[in-house]
Nucleic acid binder design. Sequence first.
RNA 1: GGAGGGGUGGCAGAGCGGUCAAAUGCAACGGACUGUAACUCCGUCGGGGAAACCCUACAUAGGUUCGAAUCCUAUCCCCUCCA
Length: 422
Amino acid sequence: MHKDIEIKSEFLRVLSSRGFIHDCTDIKGLDSQQCINKKLIAYVGYDATAQSLHVGHLVNIMMLRWLQKFGGQPITLIGGGTTRIGDPSFRSEERPILSIRNINSNVVSLRTIFNKYLNYKNEPNKALMVDNESWLTELNYLEFLRDFGKHFSINRMLSFDSVKTRLDREQSLSFLEFNYMLLQAYDFLELNRKFNCSLQIGGSDQWGNIVSGIDLIRRISNKHAFGLTSPLITTADGKKMGKSHGKAIWLNPKLLSPYEFWQFWRNTDDSDVTRFLLLYTELPYDDCIKYGALKGQQINDAKILLANQITELCHGKTASMKANTTAVKVFQHGEIDFNLPTQRISLNELKPMITISQLLIKSGLVSSGKEAKRLIAEDGARYNDKLITSPNLQLTEKDFKSPIKLSAGKKRHVLLKLETDQ
RNA sequence: GGAGGGGUGGCAGAGCGGUCAAAUGCAACGGACUGUAACUCCGUCGGGGAAACCCUACAUAGGUUCGAAUCCUAUCCCCUCCA
């Protein structure tokens, strides 16, 4: 594979050495083209299935950052149109169909994310933001089938792993979903025509869709386009990157506070540190290797560095430093810090009093009274760092003079604050 | 349209008239050990209640039975094969 090939261009060398490359449709061709023309134009597409992207998506954004750094031009495509269909690749069942309203609001929210990572302002290689809704909704069914549908072979499409698993498992694949590939292929063609975009970057699960686009470009425009996929990033325990404790690690601070974001990285598995430093930070290669190789207690310093770097990139220097200080206070000194996730509670809710179980539910640390009781029985619940021994402990307004810190286990802490407004 | 198979907890998957809030595995949660790690070990894992106990759940709606996830009927959904 690409490892055996002498890569000449700086951009691809960096990507390759840092572990970004899973596969490429033509690494040699892409490399030599890169050497001649620095201004490679590449795109990554994201469907608007949620309000935010999560850390799993960050890998491809980092790739675009490197691209821009080396003079290339990144295009971020938001799939306002394709989200209406839903990508079936490697999905075991059909995605729930989102309402147009829902999609539109997701699109708006997603647009705000990229500014932190890519430069959309300064020429000559400023990033572009596009939404495939603008051309996909224009398509006419009959024309589309005649002009493009004829270039797609069903036999070929069925042979892609992305749908094969679904078919092998005897799960239905609807015609709607089956069309997703054509639309994504068309996106690539459109960007190729309009902006001369010649590279599509995506996760390895996107291989089939990307290759289809390349084929379409060749057939329609007789041009040679490229595809580059990143490996599916998993954590050491084999889980897909992007979730922790069932919760997604969102990039949008409205959905996940910088403190919690920082904690996620701070809790990285030892064996993931090097990989993550390479993928998610821009520290020099040698430093990443050096820090990742630290042993024992010392590797914690590497994790802190990792957390600081990524949080700074995603949420800014101030937020990152705050998260770090909070962690020191909470974990090393067992103090209360106002930067901890905070829940507000209204005066009404504690009239005349409220049980500690109810408060635990309010805080979001547990989801039911039974769970609260269980947690307390297991000696896992703390109130201002004191062990809670009875689920019937009652609190009143007096106890809320200053915010209350509730903890579940050693790591999850929430502040409860009395609503101060009228 | 026809024939057959199937829908069980977050997922996978047992159970096929009572002992079923439902085996087992995974995931999750708490504890011990540690380094805010991993491994390992222990415990928990539908909801309400201080508790006795009560409520809701095995696709949906009815029925048979002292008793139903388990039997019957209808409906919906999925899969396979045939047309």
